[in-house]
């Protein structure tokens, strides 16, 4: 193997090792949620009802579809269909932006209703409620930052596909950006039932 040959297995293992740290990061936050859920079950269920299931479900569908288009973009690159790959990554990014727009309106409504970290309404409410919304803003906020990073990675991949630096024999950048995007989707799969669907 000469020095110009990329170490494909190593590149991918490195990405997965990073994803493991992300799993532990969000895993830790979910444990925090679980502990407080077991302590304030009733309050958490009441607070969860105030979240809009429609927006939550819509965002779930958006992320699932965008994950599908990113996975398909890799298939397209492997099949030397550069144009389809560009379209598919483009669609994924549009969906990513749509997710953030939804999130913006969702958070906006909550802010208007006086529910935000440190708000007088939450400070006066029972202990569990401020914990629920504190965790809601922390976890969905951190997840939102991940979406933004994912969008940046996808745009870099898109640029590399158009400039033909990503092609059928070399697409590690797209593959790793895709892995990151799927991880963001994966985390949302747990956020959605825990915050929006608890009854």
């Amino acid at each position: 193997m000469n020095s110009r040959t990329p170490d494909k297995a190593g590149v991918k293992l490195g990405m997965w090792l990073f994803l493991y740290t992300e799993i532990m990061l969000f895993g830790g936050l979910f444990i925090l949620y679980a502990v407080y859920y077991s302590k304030y079950t009733g309050v958490f269920i009441e607070a969860g009802k105030s979240l809009d299931i429609t927006i939550g479900a819509l965002n779930t569908v958006i992320l699932l579809v965008s994950s599908f288009t990113v996975a398909s973009a890799i298939t397209a690159v492997q099949k030397k269909a550069q144009r389809s790959a560009i379209t598919l990554v483009g669609i994924s990014m549009v969906f990513g932006v749509l997710f953030l727009v939804n999130k913006y309106f969702e958070w906006g409504h909550k802010f208007e209703a006086g529910i935000y970290p440190g708000s007088p309404d939450l400070s006066d409410a029972e202990a569990g409620k401020s914990l629920f919304f504190g965790l809601y803003y922390l976890i969905t906020g951190l997840h939102g930052i991940h979406i933004i990073i994912g969008l940046i990675l996808l745009s870099i991949s898109l640029y590399f596909i158009t400039t033909k630096r990503i092609h059928a024999t070399r697409f590690a950048v797209l593959e790793n950006s895709g892995l990151y995007w799927h991880l963001v989707d994966l985390i949302w799969v747990f956020i959605f039932p825990l915050f929006y669907l608890i009854l």
Binding site: S67, F68, V70, A71, G178, L179, H182, L183, D185, L186, V189, F190
Partner: peptide, 9 residues
């Protein structure tokens, strides 16, 4: 999550 990990990832 398993479906996403096994096939998309």
């Amino acid at each position: 999550a398993s479906f996403i990990l096994l096939f998309f990832m």
